[in-house]
């Protein structure tokens, strides 16, 4: 993780960073929608398991777990979205700082005497404090985001195991076996969709470190 973002030095990078955040956000949105779908599917599966009775006890337990998984995933996505909001704020602050720096640098090249010395001192202290501080902040936020995406990937891996187990349980569903099988395949497909979204999320997230 070396690609240290420094908007103040590279004009255009703020826009790039914002567009990257938007791509991440679009994936978050699609995961949220899918998590919502899983929640509904799990509720239906719980009802179905109840109707199937004794032969679908295991399936019922797994459906409950899948529902909890969907709720956890939705929560995780909310936190992820809040983190991207933090990134937008930091980028905005950095653009403002870089604008001030640009103007100060121009002033330094125009000014003479005491005024110029004053600007020089100001630029030096700003450079040491604020700028490194805010690009550190972006890197820290990005590390947090990466960690959260990795955690989510693990959570979804768990969801996918649950869906596979539900499929196995469905086989013991007696007269309900066919419909339980259908429901568990739907789970598997939908979780597959989430996995694909997370893969692109991870890809968008890692773009930052290539710079």
């Amino acid at each position: 993780m070396s690609g240290h973002m420094d908007i103040s030095r590279n004009p255009g990078e703020a826009g790039q960073e914002l567009r990257r955040i938007v791509r991440i956000n679009e994936e978050i949105k699609s995961v949220v929608a899918t998590a919502f779908k899983i929640n509904l599917m799990a509720m239906n599966a719980i009802f179905l398991a109840k109707r199937a009775g004794q032969s679908a006890l295991g399936f019922g337990v797994l459906s409950n777990e899948l529902r909890r998984f969907a709720t956890d995933l939705q929560q995780q996505m909310t936190v992820l979205r809040e983190t991207t909001y933090g990134s937008v704020s930091t980028v905005t602050a950095q653009v403002k700082q870089s604008r001030v720096t640009r103007l100060l640098e121009k002033t330094r090249s125009d000014a003479r005497g005491e005024g110029r010395a004053g600007i020089d001192r100001l630029l030096r202290s700003r450079h040491e404090a604020a700028l490194t501080d805010s690009s550190d902040k972006i890197s820290a936020l990005n590390r947090r985001l990466s960690q959260m995406i990795a955690d989510t990937t693990q959570l979804v891996e768990l969801g996918s195991v649950l869906a596979r187990s539900a499929k196995i349980e469905a086989a013991y569903g007696g007269g309900f076996s066919a419909s339980l099988m259908q429901v568990s395949s739907d789970f598997e497909d939908t979780i597959g969709e989430i996995q694909r979204s997370l893969e692109s999320l991870t890809r968008h997230q890692s773009e930052e470190f290539r710079a």
């Binding site: 914002l18 949105k29 937008v88």
Partner: peptide, 10 residues
């Protein structure tokens, strides 16, 4: 800007 941009993005 951060608040507006992020709200729209949702």
């Amino acid at each position: 800007f951060p608040a507006v941009f992020s709200a729209i993005s949702t």
